[in-house]
């Protein structure tokens, strides 16, 4: 009975547009939905460092080298900010940062499909910044109005940084688009490679039960398809204006429904890539994370030990 009342009051707060804070009472379902979302967001940022990291040592000018180092650092930094938010949500469930990281290594938490994919050329480093981060901004900007205060605040900073990333990516892309025949070829191939992943990135068209619950709780306010349409509206003209093509013969704007019509991605293939970590680069990148986390446990343990010694 008391719980029902609390729940009712909680929903009223949300409907009034109030923000929920970490120490406020919240329904278990709300906590779990949020934790799942933010945990996935956090580990995606951390795994998202890897496809571009491959290009950090190879960046072709000093300016690019500095920029891509800072960019990848930001992604890891976002991971850290989000993990802090997730840690607070996870604490009452008895979970720690170590557990959240282990969930990633053990495949108990998913990360975004795009970070399972290959990035074999310098143009991929550009396309990731330009289009993948571009898609991420659309997703994240839509979450700025989320009912959970700590997430909203972290997202504000993340979105500001991501818009830099998009410019960084666009800058790489512009150099390639205005460059040699070979550079343009490299760029077109990268766009071809990423397109389907980008369409999948926003998730299924139909609104799943979990997504519906998140909308009820105002954790998110827009559907996958609304966000995907926003992406297409923004980027299709930009891609075309650079003289690039999009590898989808069915892509067109339908005046009547005021929507972009597109070929559906292979939902099953990508779904399995994400669920079972079986994309072309999933295992290789998880191995890197395992190296960071497990092979260097001795470092974290040593730092804890020596801190205790200093306190004594």
């Amino acid at each position: 009975m008391i719980t029902d009342q609390r729940h009712e009051q909680f929903m009223e707060r949300i409907q009034r547009g109030e923000k929920i804070e970490a120490t406020d009472w919240m329904p278990d379902e709300y906590r779990k939905l949020l934790l799942k979302l933010i945990h996935m967001h956090a580990v995606s940022e951390i795994m998202g460092a890897f496809p571009e990291k491959e290009w950090v040592p190879k960046a072709p000018t000093l300016k690019r080298k500095l920029a891509i180092m800072a960019k990848v650092q930001d992604e890891v930094g976002h991971g850290q900010l989000l993990l802090r938010v997730a840690e607070d949500l996870a604490a009452p469930l008895g979970k720690t940062r170590e557990d959240l990281m282990e969930d990633l290594i053990e495949g108990r938490v998913k990360f975004h499909n795009v970070f399972h994919m290959e990035s074999p050329t310098w143009a991929d480093a550009g396309v990731i910044g330009w289009l993948v981060d571009g898609a991420a901004i659309i997703n994240q900007a839509a979450l700025l109005s989320t009912s959970y205060g700590p997430y909203a605040r972290v997202l504000k900073r993340i979105c500001a940084e991501e818009s830099f990333h998009m410019q960084h990516g666009e800058n790489i892309i512009l150099a390639l688009a205005g460059g040699s025949k070979e550079q343009r070829r490299m760029l077109q191939e990268a766009v071809n490679r990423w397109w389907e992943s980008l369409i999948f990135f926003f998730g299924p068209v139909e609104v799943t039960d979990a997504a519906r619950r998140m909308i009820d709780y105002r954790i998110r306010t827009k559907t996958n398809e609304e966000l995907r349409q926003q992406f297409l509206k923004k980027y299709v003209p930009r891609i075309h204006s650079l003289g690039l093509t999009i590898p989808d013969p069915n892509l067109r704007y339908d005046e009547e429904s005021e929507k972009w019509i597109f070929t559906e991605p292979d939902w099953k293939k990508f779904g399995e890539i994400v669920r079972y970590n079986q994309g072309p680069k999933s295992q290789e990148r998880l191995k890197l994370r395992r190296f960071a986390h497990e092979d260097q446990r001795w470092v974290r343990e040593a730092m804890v030990r020596s801190q205790k010694m200093q306190v004594v």
Partner: peptide
């Protein structure tokens, strides 16, 4: 070391 440091804070 990007993405590979022993903890996320150290990485940044």
């Amino acid at each position: 070391w990007l993405g590979l440091a022993p903890d996320i804070e150290g990485d940044v």
